[in-house]
Nucleic acid binder design. Structure first.
Length: 295
DNA sequence: CTCCAGGGATGAT
DNA sequence: ATCATCCATGGA
């Protein structure tokens, strides 16, 4: 076990990992255990420093340094103060910005992010976490870290070579068919997720939406979390609720299309970041209301 | 346009 | 201990 300290200014690890953008990190004590690509690590925040525990690299040679991988994964290079300053100055956004200080949109591996969000449709965060764990345990590669074992997210070939039935055993339900079909498209080379990074937002979204199990919402999540398209604005039920109740409280005829058009213009060049802040703030506020309901 | 598949955590009773 | 609710895509 080795330790690495990494400068992590303006960062909140727990907020970042608990904001519904990534689903496999497990909290044990003060540490979050998970994989970054092929590497098993734990991460602990100590003020402005991220302490990272890790085993030996899986392969020697030309792999990037661990600290480089961590900096890239958690996007410590995103100019967060500047990004937050670009949000609109309205009461809703200001409350979310203040609550979510240090939340960063991370850079997830493309396939892992796409596959995970295909499994996310019509599921809540707790279920998505379970599916991710089952897929990893059954099809991923085992890694040891300290006394814990972790599993990498299975490569496309691994899932493409499985079966709808095996995937259903991982609690995917009807999503199994979509994940299998998409894995086979990627594995066959018919789809090259890395090459898609060169596409415009419009073309990337269109290509993603062609994949089985990917609609507008999942496509926007993948654009935001795996392709660093910080303008992409996924609208799920939580965000739709925020938009309707907070921005248009007495407009009865706001269609989904009009809401989408509003979001795309109102939240600006880092709309995806704004969306994540609104999403996380709304979810945490709802949770707080359960323990202390209003009146 | 409507209806529904499929499923496990979570809340309500 | 049961019962209802949450959720996004795609096909009928």
């Amino acid at each position: 076990m080795k330790l690495t300290e990494i400068d992590a200014p303006n960062f909140d690890l727990a907020m970042t990992l608990d904001s519904g953008q990534v689903f496999h990190w497990e909290k044990i004590g003060n540490r979050f255990y998970g994989t970054i690509g092929d590497r098993a690590v734990w991460v602990e925040q100590r003020g402005d420093v991220a302490l990272v525990g890790h085993g030996a690299p899986s392969q020697s040679g030309d792999s990037p340094t661990l600290s480089g991988m961590v900096v890239n994964y958690f996007a410590f290079d995103h100019p967060l103060a500047e990004i937050c300053r670009s949000f609109p100055d309205d009461p809703i956004m200001n409350a979310a910005r203040s609550y979510c200080r240090g939340l960063r949109i991370i850079r997830q591996p493309r396939w892992e992010c796409l596959a995970t969000f295909i499994t996310s449709s019509m599921k809540q965060v707790a279920h998505i976490r379970q599916i991710s764990r089952k897929l990893r345990e059954r099809f991923g590669e085992r890694r040891e870290i300290g006394n814990s074992e972790l599993f990498t997210f299975p490569a496309p070939a691994r899932l493409a070579g499985s079966s709808e039935r095996a995937l259903r055993e991982c609690a995917l339900g009807y999503r199994a068919k979509n994940l299998l079909a998409t894995a086979q498209l990627v594995e066959s080379g018919a789809v090259n997720l890395e090459k898609w990074s060169a596409l415009s937002d419009v073309d990337l979204r269109a290509n993603l939406c062609e994949l089985p199990g990917v609609g507008a919402k999942v496509a926007n999540c993948v654009m935001l979390f795996a392709y660093e398209r910080l303008r992409a604005f996924p609208i799920d039920v939580w965000i739709e609720r925020v938009l309707r109740e907070q921005y248009f409280p007495r407009k009865r005829n706001m269609t989904a299309g009009r809401l989408r058009a509003f979001a795309e213009t109102h939240f600006g060049e880092h709309g995806g970041y704004a969306q994540q802040y609104l999403f996380h703030h709304a979810r945490m506020a709802a949770r707080a209301n359960l323990s202390a309901p209003p009146r």
